[in-house]
Design a protein around this nucleic acid. Structure first.
Length: 154
DNA sequence: GCCAACGTTGGC
DNA sequence: GCCAACGTTGGC
């Protein structure tokens, strides 16, 4: 099993939203590298840290699980959607997503600053300067460490 | 609101 | 294929 980190803005879709709806298509990703992770590398059962960006403070707030197989992001075909992509066709869809299922909300949030200050998390991709990727792979040891800091045990 | 970092676009 | 211009991300 692999581990990931997925960013979302809590004003748009936060961990509480996921807890409420239980499952959500991860739509709106318009970055090829992030798409490739979902399309080619994520497997059902993979766990992801749920990270709040553009938040006060930003940080890891819970865990979500990949469910099902990848499929085309429906918002790319919807002219009314802000994620509409006129260059994408149903025959050859450009944007592929997976669904995430709610697993847990951390009893304690793990702010970005705490993650940066934690020696055990050194080298984590999301902590590298200039990393804007909304989906990044996470090493198992880093995943476990963040969960521990969040006061959550699988 | 600022701005560094970085991805994308489009002219050539 | 190069690269300047532009747009977006996201922390602060």
């Amino acid at each position: 099993m692999r581990h990931w980190l997925i960013k979302s803005e809590p004003d748009v879709f936060g961990i509480d939203h996921l807890a409420k709806v239980k499952q959500e298509p991860w739509s709106g990703v318009r970055n090829y590298q992030a798409r490739n992770y979902m399309r080619d590398e994520m497997k059902p059962g993979d766990l992801a840290l749920f990270y709040h960006s553009n938040a006060t403070p930003p940080g890891s707030v819970g865990v979500a699980k990949v469910v099902g197989a990848p499929y085309p992001d429906p918002t790319q075909f919807d002219p009314e959607s802000e994620y509409y992509d006129p260059k994408s066709t149903k025959e050859n869809p450009r944007w592929i997503l997976v669904d995430f299922e709610f697993v847990a909300k951390f009893p304690t949030e793990v702010p970005l600053q705490q993650m940066k200050d934690d020696a055990a998390l050194e080298g984590m991709m999301v902590l590298q300067k200039g990393t804007r990727l909304s989906i990044t792979p996470v090493e198992a040891k880093h995943f476990k460490r963040v969960c521990k800091l969040g006061g959550w045990k699988a």
